[in-house]
Design a protein around this nucleic acid. Structure first.
Length: 438
RNA sequence: GCCCUGGUAGUGUAGUGGCCCAUCAUGUGGCCCUGUCGAGGCUGCGACCCGGGUUCAAAUCCCGGCCGGGGCGCCA
């Protein structure tokens, strides 16, 4: 007999034979009758074991440790006493894999566990329905993004994650021993995306891990994260990039809302689909708004973490949205982003922007500098060793179109979308400054 | 890198100098119970991160170490 899921058995006729399997969530032994709650991916079904009918097996069955994997064959019996409207009267129960006791982390315990304990035992943690839902939403978000890129004529690419040089500076790179050479894990696909613009791909996107060896310890950073990047050519200004970004976010969220509304209900999240165009506030104006709100700076006036949250609240109140762009980042704040194009009419400003979502940076992007000579001088300002960038720079000498793009933190997107308290909740096996396992 | 905070049974906690051979819940073992679903009743088990110091007395105070959590910087 073929195994079916808990929710599939709902459609069977009363009295039909069936075979189900899953994890034994709990046993309720009342003495002469016992109820087993068995969980599979679709839900939880109940098996009722009557001592009169299963005299020999009864004691063994009620002693199966919870979270063991069992296979149940039996007869479907309709009842109004279970959530799914039926229970299984077993003819045979087979233990496929008995769980050890005690569990290092209870799946249906009535006490909470700390995140460290949960992450140490992540496979058990993920048996919880509400944890799996996060990754179902994440899956939908990825589908929505790919659907958008495909419709817009972007092609998906994969660029190397083992690289010789980083995009900005060297301090945040992980070292990798690469045969006889020193290499690094890519902190961004930035330089490769640009090189593909020189190849004439015109529109590319990549969804891939990025690595940052930063010493951060926050609820919104991990050392390994999934970066959603796109790059496009023949743009007139960074407004083209912002438009594309807005449509991308809009499309992806709409996709999630359509396909995942029942899961979103579980999270109690009212999903906002941003209107086009998304509000744009130049960095300088952000500073003025923050000043009006009473913010003070010790030294450089910029939108810091506190400022981001304040602006998020401000925009929410003034315009009723969780989305806005901070545009025209001053060149002084983007110095290390050597490939950022500066405004033609005012080189103290860049074309760079951030998309803020619920008071947190979600996307960063802008128009790139496509002119070889200007790029070189901006790199020299950063004291970069041009020799290390030879293969990158070469692509600017033989026909490079105007171009620009963005990077979006997928994990952070999921976090903000579902109001998760920590980005680690949105990652199956997160990597941070102290966690390398599991 | 800087700042704050914490480490007590498998899990989550109470306890901030003697009331503690450590509280409660959950878990787990035994017994009772034929409709449970946070089942119930009786009963047992199980812990003070490591090292040094102060003190008549340390889970508690001090120093060092190790390991978490959070904030900032930075960023996605």
């Amino acid at each position: 007999m073929k195994r079916i899921h808990a929710t599939d058995a709902v459609d069977l006729e009363d009295g039909a034979s069936c075979r189900l399997a899953g994890w034994l969530q709990e046993v309720k032994d009342l003495g002469g009758i016992a109820f087993l709650k068995v969980r599979d991916r679709s839900g939880v079904f109940q098996v009722v074991v009557d001592k009169d009918n299963m005299e020999k097996e009864y004691d063994d069955i009620v002693e199966i440790p919870r979270e063991s994997v069992i296979v149940v064959e039996g007869e479907k019996k309709e009842t109004d006493q279970t959530e799914l409207g039926y229970e299984i009267v077993p003819s045979a129960i087979k233990v496929e894999n008995e769980a050890e006791k005690p569990l290092p982390l209870g799946v249906v315990d009535k006490v909470n566990a700390e995140m460290g304990t949960r992450l140490d035992n992540r496979f058990l943690d993920l048996r919880k329905e509400e944890k799996r839902y996060i990754f179902e939403i994440r899956d939908l978000l990825l589908q929505g993004l790919r659907d958008f890129f495909s419709k817009e004529g972007f092609i998906e690419v994969n660029t190397p994650k083992i690289v010789a040089t980083g995009a900005e500076g060297g301090a945040t790179l992980f070292d990798v021993q690469y045969y006889d050479n020193n290499a690094h894990l890519a902190q961004s696909p930035q330089l490769y995306k640009q090189m593909l613009m020189a190849s004439g791909f015109e529109k590319v996107y990549e969804i891939a891990p990025a690595y940052r060896a930063e010493d951060f310890d926050t609820i919104r950073h991990t050392s390994e994260f999934i970066s959603v990047d796109f790059e496009m050519s023949f743009i007139d200004s960074s407004d083209d990039i912002m438009d594309m970004t807005s449509y991308m976010v809009q499309h992806a969220l709409r996709y999630v809302k359509e396909k995942g509304s029942d899961i979103l209900d579980e999270f109690n999240v009212e999903l906002e689909i941003p209107d086009h165009p998304v509000k744009k506030i130049p960095h300088e104006k952000c500073i003025r708004i923050l000043e009006d709100m009473g913010k003070e700076w010790e030294d450089e006036r910029e939108v810091d973490t506190e400022g981001e949250k304040m602006l998020g609240d401000y925009v929410k109140e003034e315009y009723g949205t969780d989305f806005f762009y901070i545009t025209e980042f001053p060149t002084r704040l983007k110095k290390s982003t050597f490939y950022a194009k500066r405004k033609d009419y005012d080189p103290s400003l860049t074309t760079y922007f951030d998309l803020e979502y619920k008071g947190q940076e979600l996307v960063s992007g802008g128009q790139r500098e496509h002119r070889y000579d200007v790029l070189i001088s901006q790199m020299e300002e950063n004291d970069l060793d041009l020799e290390n960038f030879e293969s990158y720079l070469k692509t600017f000498k033989y026909g490079m179109p105007t171009h620009g793009g963005i990077g979006l933190g997928l994990d952070r997107f999921v976090q903000q979308l579902l109001d998760l308290s920590n980005i680690r909740e949105a990652i199956l096996f997160p990597r941070d400054t102290s966690r390398l396992e599991p």
